[in-house]
C-alpha cells in the first residue's frame, strides 16, 4: 500500500530494486568502488617504490656533498632542481608549483559541484572551465618535467662498465639513467606516468561534462549529479598526487 503513495521526486532516487543502498545514487557508489580499486593500483606502484628503495643502498654523507651514482638511491631534492626559464638551482620548487596547481583545480571542482547543487548553470560552466585549465596546466608542467628528466644535465654521469670501458650517461631511459639505479628512473616514469594518464583522462572527461553542461543536458535531466561523479574522480587524482609528492619527491 505504502508504495502507491511514493511521490515522483522520491521515486527518482531509488535504484531498480526500489531501494537506495547507503543513501548514495548508483553512479556515485560505483564511482567510489572504482576509486578503491584504483587506489589499490597506485598503492601497488608506490609500495614497489618503497621496496626498491629499501633494497638498494642509501646515500651516506651530507646532503651538500651529494653526487649521483648508480650505486645508491638518489636524494630527490638533488635530482629535481630545475624550473623553466631560470638557470638556477631550485630544488623541488617546480614540483611544489605543480602540487598547488592540482590542489587549486580540485578547489574549483568543489565549487563546480556546489554550483551544481544550486542548479546554477553559469557557475558550473565557469568552475568546470577553470578545472580544465588547471588540469591542462598540470599536464604541461609534467611534460616539461619529463623532458628535463630524459634530457639530463650537460655533465652527465661517468660510469665504468664491467669490461673496463669508461663512458658517460646523459639523462634517463628505461635501461639506465644518470641519477641513480635503473629502477629509480623506471619508477619515476611508471608512477608519474600512470598518474599523468589519470590526469589526462580526467581532463577529457571534464571536457565532455563541460560540453554537456553548456548544451543544457543536465538542465533537462534536472540535476548536476554527473558533475559530482566526475568531481569524485578529479579529487582522487589530486589525492594520489599528494601521496606521490610526499613519497617520491619529499622523502
Amino acid at each position: 500500500m505504502a508504495t502507491a503513495v511514493i511521490d515522483e521526486k522520491e521515486n527518482k532516487q531509488l535504484w531498480g530494486g526500489a531501494a537506495e543502498p547507503m543513501k548514495a545514487s548508483y553512479g556515485k557508489l560505483m564511482m567510489w568502488f572504482f576509486l578503491i580499486s584504483d587506489a589499490l593500483s597506485f598503492s601497488g606502484l608506490l609500495i614497489t617504490y618503497g621496496f626498491s628503495r629499501f633494497s638498494h643502498e642509501s646515500y651516506q654523507g651530507t646532503v651538500e656533498a651529494f653526487k649521483t651514482s648508480v650505486e645508491y638511491w638518489p636524494i630527490p631534492e638533488k635530482v629535481f632542481t630545475h624550473i623553466p626559464f631560470f638557470h638556477i638551482n631550485a630544488p623541488l620548487v617546480f614540483v611544489g608549483l605543480m602540487t598547488f596547481i592540482l590542489i587549486l583545480s580540485s578547489v574549483t571542482m568543489v565549487l563546480a559541484v556546489e554550483a551544481g547543487h544550486r542548479n546554477d548553470k553559469q557557475d558550473v560552466q565557469k568552475w568546470m572551465l577553470w578545472t580544465i585549465v588547471g588540469g591542462m596546466a598540470f599536464l604541461g608542467c609534467q611534460a616539461w618535467e619529463w623532458t628535463i628528466f630524459i634530457t639530463g644535465t650537460p655533465e652527465g654521469l661517468t660510469v665504468t662498465d664491467a669490461d673496463g670501458t669508461i663512458r658517460q650517461i646523459f639523462g634517463a631511459s628505461l635501461i639506465e639513467n644518470e641519477y641513480g639505479p635503473r629502477l629509480f628512473a623506471d619508477l619515476f616514469f611508471f608512477i608519474t606516468g600512470f598518474h599523468g594518464t589519470h590526469v589526462l583522462s580526467g581532463v577529457v572527461i571534464n571536457m565532455i561534462v563541460f560540453y554537456n553542461v553548456c548544451v543544457g543536458t543536465y538542465e533537462r535531466v534536472g540535476h548536476y549529479e554527473m558533475v559530482e561523479k566526475v568531481g569524485l574522480y578529479w579529487h582522487f587524482v589530486d589525492l594520489v598526487w599528494v601521496f606521490v609528492f610526499t613519497f617520491f619527491y619529499l622523502v
Binding site: 598503492s43 621496496f51 629499501f54
Partner: peptide, 14 residues
C-alpha cells in the same frame, strides 16, 4: 600491512 611487509622485505633483500 602490505607497506610494512614490503619495506621489511626490501631491507632483507638488501
Amino acid at each position: 600491512w602490505l607497506i610494512l611487509a614490503m619495506l621489511i622485505e626490501g631491507n632483507y633483500v638488501l
